[in-house]
Nucleic acid binder design. Structure first.
Lengths: 145, 145
DNA sequence: CGATTTTGTTATCAAATGATAATTAAAGAG
DNA sequence: CTCTTTAATTATCATTTGATAACAAAATCG
């Protein structure tokens, strides 16, 4: 298969992934939370506890802007800052109970929509999908490292 | 495999896809083009000719805002509006020569980065990846319909 | 034909985001 | 101990984006 066609296939695929994730996640964002804030909360939920710099790096948001958004989230009692004993410049950030509850609810909705989407797949097909995810994750979409 | 783990796997995967596409496409956006404008140009490039409503629907941008951004792009001579004979309300939009050249260049850069990313894969692995793309595209990320 | 729907435009406003400079405090290097 | 680097904050500004209302013209429906 020629590179050109392969590349086109990948572009089409990533576009589809973006569209589907948009569909799965639309409307789950709670009132009063901006898109950027939600994406930060999502990141914290998955990787907590994290430092401010980590959020800044991974989400490609400058430190000042990360600090600003995190301050707003903290004021809304959605996350907490914990001092780090070894390095007193750093702060570990994690979701508060309220923030955790909020994100659980959001993930639950997304999960339901996802299950709806694969509900017609047999056990064998799910296995196949799972293997496909492994292949692509390890051979193409391996961001880490 | 339980649903919970399956869902988690998918979340991790889509996150990776987003990160990788960000890496592949960062810095390719030409000077003076905003992110939203670039995403519109990308969509036109792949699907041209398209109507304004199609752009609005597919990119989830309201008609007024789509119209505004398209006007700016037209003023920059990056795309053209063609009248439709059968329905004089509609306009078909496509890239101008300059716009096409610009997007070709952008896609070329992305293509190079992509090839770099899969350069260590054998022919068999590429076949495997291709099949995995087909599986996921048809069974999970099938946005159309 | 008249009413309604579709397609697109213009204008305007508010909110979200991005970018930068200046500052603080702690850690680490020499 | 001084100098430099790292982590984070605050303040400020311009740009981008989203949202809404009001409008116009063509198509479609009954």
């Amino acid at each position: 298969m020629d590179k050109e066609a392969f590349f086109h296939k990948l572009v089409t695929f990533t576009t589809a992934v973006h569209e589907v994730t948009f569909d799965l996640t639309k409307d789950v964002r709670p009132e009063g939370i901006t898109p950027v804030q939600y994406s930060i909360l999502e990141y914290i939920a998955v990787s907590q506890p994290v430092t401010l710099s980590q959020i800044s790096d991974c989400k490609n948001i400058s430190m000042p802007n990360t600090s600003r958004e995190l301050k707003k989230l903290t004021e809304k009692n959605l996350c907490e800052k914990l001092d780090v004993a070894e390095d007193r410049r750093k702060q570990m950030i994690r979701l508060s109970d309220a923030g955790q509850a909020m994100m659980n609810k959001a993930f639950e909705q997304i999960g339901e929509r996802f299950l709806e989407r694969i509900k017609d797949s047999s056990t064998e097909e799910l296995e196949e999908i799972s293997r496909a995810l492994d292949v692509l994750h390890s051979k193409v979409f391996n961001s880490g490292e």
